[in-house]
Each structure stands twice: as C-alpha cells, then as structure tokens.
Design a protein around this nucleic acid. Structure first.
Lengths: 333, 333
DNA sequence: GTGAAAGCGCTAACAC
DNA sequence: GTGTTAGCGCTTTCAC
C-alpha cells in the first residue's frame, strides 16, 4: 500500500502538505492541491486508519456490543443504532459477545473496547462487578435488563410496566389462568425474568386475582424451539390455561407453535401476549399482541448519553427506564 | 491509560521486557516476569491494539460486511460466521453497509477494510465494477447472489436449483397457478431475483407446463409488509393462484399474512414455499416449506477461501455455487 | 535473559 | 503556503 510518503515523493511536496490536502485543510494552493490529488489518484493512496487512530487518539468508530446478532431483538437494536448514527456520518461496528460469560469477557476486553470512541454495551451474562471493572474513562453506556453497576449510564426497558400491561390486558380480555413462559418463582431474581414475572404477578394483584405459581414456566434460553417444547410438555402434563404472557416475542412464537401442536387455537382457546414487538410479530397469523419496547427511545437516549460521555465533560451517571406501550393484535380477543 | 513504558518504569525493566512478558514470549526469567506482571496488575495496563496493529501490520480481526443486520438472513449468517470463528479464537466484527450504494461505498472504503486481516463481503447494491476496484491485495471473499467480478473468490447459493426445487415441489403437490413473489419478467436481470425466477420458470418447463408471466409479482425490498400488501392488492385485482413461490422467507411470511387477510387458507387454498429457512420459519403456523440455503456450507467454504487468501500464497479465484435442499413443512400439502 | 534503536503511518505544533 | 520536528504505543532486529 502506498503511504503519505510515497504520495509526497511522487508529487514533489512534503508529507505534511499531502496530509493537508487529503484532509481537506485550507491553506494549500490550488496548484499543489491538484498535483497531490493527481498523485493520490495515480498511486491509489488510501489513508491508513490504524495510523491515524494511533496518532489522533480517536478512531471515529462506535461499537455496539450485543450477545448475538441472530436474536432478532438485538438485530433490530443494532440496525436502529446504525440508522440513528448515519445522519451524523459516524461509523458503527457490531461486536458479538456470544451470550456466554467467556465470550463477553473476551469481547469486552478493555483492550478491544479501547479501540472505539464509544461503546454501547448490552450485556446478559456478566456480573455487575465485572462490568464495573471496565475502565471508567471509556465512554460507555450500558443497555439491558440485568442488574448493572450504578456508577455508569444505563438505559433499560420498562420491564415491570410492560409485563403488567401485557398481563392486565389478558385479564381484561377474560383470561383467568395466565401462564408466564420464561418466568421465575425465585423472588431474588432481579434480572429481566424476575422483573417481568413481578409485573405479571402485580397485574393479578391489581385485578384482585392471585397469580398461581404453577403457571410459571421457566425460561429456556428464550428460544423458539425450547419454548415450543416446554408448553407442549406442560399441556401434556395437564396444565390448564387460557392465556400466556411470553417474556419475549421469540418465546411467544414458540408458544403459539406449541399450542397449535396441541390442537389449541389462538386466541379462541388461549390468548397470547409477547414482549419486544419484533418486526415479524406483526405478520404472524394471527398478529401477535405484544409490548412495544420503544426501541426508538432507547436508541435516542443511549446515544444522547454516549455523546455526553464522548464530549469529555463530567456528568453523574443516569439510570433510565424507558416507557413501553402495548400493541394489540390478533392473539388477544 | 498506562503504556508499556509506564509498566517498564514501575517494574524497573525495559519496555521490551515488558512486551515480552505481556506477549508470553519465552526467554524471560521467572523473577522479572513476576515483577512485571505485578506492575501490569497494579497499573491496570492493557495493550493498545491500535498501536500493535500499526506496528504488526495485522489487527487479528476479520470483518463481515452485510447490508443490514436486521434482515434475519444476514443476521443468521453473521452469527454462523462468528460461531465458526470462535474455536480458532479469532475475532469478528460486523459492518453494516445499509443496502444502499452510498452506504456500501462508504463502509467498503478501502481505508476501513484495510483495518482488518480479512473481509467477508456480502454486497447487494454495488456494481461488480465497483467491487472490482477494491485493492486486490486485501484478503477478501465475496458472498451473495448478485453478479460479481470474476477475479475474486465468490461463494453463492444454489439459487437456480433452489427455486426449481421449490417450484417443482409445488407442482408435484398439485399447484398449477404458482405465483412467484419477488420475481422479475426482465430476462436481463442476472441477480438473485433473475436467477430464482429462472428456476421457477424451468420447473414449469420440466413439468410440461408454461409459466405465466402474469403470476410474476415484482420484488418489494423483500420486506414482509410490502409483500403482504402486494399479494393483497394482486388478489383484490382478481389474481387467481393456488401456489406461491416466495423468493425469500421474509417475503413468504408477508405473503402468508396477506393470504390470511384475504380469507385464503394455507395450504388448503394456496400452498407456499419460501427460500432461506430462517430460524423462525420452522415455528410459523403452519411451518413454512422452504429452501435450506445450507449456510453451514457457505460459511465453511467462505472461511476456507479467506484463510487461503490470508495465508499470503497465490491462488486463482474460485467461484462456488453451494448445494441447497428443500425442507418440507406445513405450507405445502 | 535483557535492552537500545528504529520505525510502522500519521498529524499537531511550530518554523519559515 | 509549505516543510521540519516530534511522537502516538508498540514490536522487530540485533547487540550485549
């Protein structure tokens, strides 16, 4: 690859002048500019971004670190962040951590993240103490529903509110035996599963009903196939339900398939509500009633906080819980 | 951030020795190693990957460049590549080009790609001449179904074969008026849409039938909502069909929703086959009959070719068309 | 075993 | 306007 030096030699000027031309800086005479650009063109010169980063201390790139890109929720998040960044001409790369602690620890190595000007970090497997260990000087905004160190900016969804909305809607539409698929009976569980289960429980209480712990089916990696199998097994074991709150849309899709496998119709026999409002959810048959996590707000706020950090000024950490809203479609009556 | 120099000062050795310790190189006495590691720990030293890249000429990172990560096909591709790379401990980042020529041109700037040791490039909007302009020295493997310069390694799906399989299956199951949604009547179209349409046509011919051009519904960004609207409009206009070959599973999902909107049942009234075998396709109700693009093969071959390029040796370009297979589920009888 | 010197390609700061 | 100097943090080379 040709370097600035090569271009300088070819056009008979100094490296600095070439650098000035390449970066569109003002004080360069039109004649030299033309000569330099000709040489750039002829040699096919391209700036070396690694060298530029090293020198400038900035890479011009932001990273979004997510567990897996083939989980539609994260994929949609990544696309939304990219779109939000585009108008400013900033560049995003997506890092996948692999949803395992090892993967997250390695993808999150200080060293790697240091290559970016800012990092949006969506973590699932790490303890907050491990996240807290990350260099405090790095512009970093945490996303996600797990417990996080309080000293950092953190944007999360209205998990409790959403679960409550979803469950209340099922109750309102006449469901009385509402399973939560992907829930937990462990009251110490403070992550997404715990909070959404609490919302499910609270909606029952608010309606003067009692949530039945036998209707709590545990999470199964939030995968479609596992959820399908789980609901099928539960029904075969005699579980009697007329509603399901699925903790994610992926789970809901698995549940709907499982209900169909068992000859139950949605919403006639069992009503279903999900959480995430994935792109596909609108086009299922019937359309999935679900909780819209307002990803637009999440992205906007996250980038606002990240920009603040990247500005270099000092701010105290914000902890944001974004509002959500229910989207009613065909899986509820 | 502390540097090698800081650690060297703190532990009373030279920068070089610290570098040797940090990189686990052999000839360092156990005593100094301990001393250095203690200093590393105390100062919280982390290697600067930018500097290392600049000096070493390698970044240890591979990039996968795809149009959008929220298109499930690309998301699954990205996840598959990540998984395939993990055993070797190599690192992948995902670059999104945005499915527009401008986006691809900017994300594909030589300069940016040069930061990576190798690039898997999945392009949709660029002309092959633009792709050809990329530096020939960069380890690069092209993925995707559009025409590509012949001088580079290129892995693509069995588009023709898959479309033919899908359509033949519909014919075999009794469909006679088979629309292709996302097809083209333009015989000069050589991209994915053109080839899959050719396969649809060929299956008719092979069965002694004649493909009806009125059954070709054009592509609509391969999006669910647009496809849904398109099939709805076509049916309202009196289109008479008993089968649909959707050029992608996303299109198929839109089509199924649209058919449902019009009161048509799948597979009783209209049978449907897709292409991509997305994760979600198995769990739709009914399950989607589709073409499995054998992403495992695509990924394995792509990485084999990329490794070859990264080895630095010279090879002549390979152009691979991977086999596909039909997955029969509930949307066909 | 350890270290000094050189330089990867670039740009900020300052001279002319 | 243009050039010189210095150095970002690291590793390769080679001397000791």
């Amino acid at each position: 690859m040709p370097t600035l030096k090569d271009v300088a030699k070819a056009s008979g000027v100094s490296v600095m002048t070439v650098s000035n031309v390449v970066n569109g800086r003002p004080r360069v005479s039109e004649a030299t500019r033309q000569r330099v650009l000709a040489a750039v063109d002829e040699l096919g010169y391209q700036v070396n971004l690694t060298a530029r980063s090293l020198r400038a201390g900035r890479s011009g790139t932001i990273a979004l670190s997510i567990p897996r890109v083939d989980h539609p929720y994260f994929a949609e998040l990544a696309a939304a962040v990219t779109d939000a960044l585009r108008p400013g001409g900033r560049h995003l790369v997506v890092e996948q951590t692999g949803a395992s602690r090892e993967g997250e620890l390695s993808a999150l190595s200080q060293a790697r993240l240091q290559m970016y000007d800012g990092v949006l970090l969506s973590v699932v497997g790490l303890k907050d103490s491990e996240v807290a260990r990350l260099n405090g000087d790095m512009p970093l905004v945490l996303l996600g529903e797990e417990p996080m160190p309080t000293g950092r900016d953190h944007v999360q969804l209205g998990n409790f509110e959403g679960a409550q909305l979803a469950t209340a809607h099922l109750i309102e539409r006449g469901a009385r035996r509402i399973a939560i698929v992907g829930g937990t009976v462990d009251p110490t569980h403070t992550g997404m599963v715990g909070v959404r289960t609490a919302g499910w429980r609270a909606a029952h209480t608010a309606a003067g009903l009692v949530a039945d712990d036998r209707l709590v089916l545990p999470p199964a990696h939030f995968a479609m196939a596992e959820s399908r199998e789980m609901i099928r097994t539960a029904l075969a074991d005699g579980l009697d339900i007329d509603g399901v709150f699925a903790v994610t849309d992926q789970v809901a899709i698995g549940v709907m398939a499982g209900l169909h496998d068992c000859g139950l119709r949605v919403p006639e026999h069992v009503q279903v509500v999900g959480f995430d409002d994935l792109d596909v959810s609108e086009h299922l048959v019937p359309g999935l009633t679900t909780v819209d996590p307002r990803m637009d707000l999440v992205v906007a706020e996250s980038l606002r906080l990240l920009d603040r950090r990247m500005s270099g000024e000092e701010f105290s950490a914000e902890h944001l819980v974004m509002p959500v809203r229910l989207v009613v479609r065909g899986t509820t009556r």
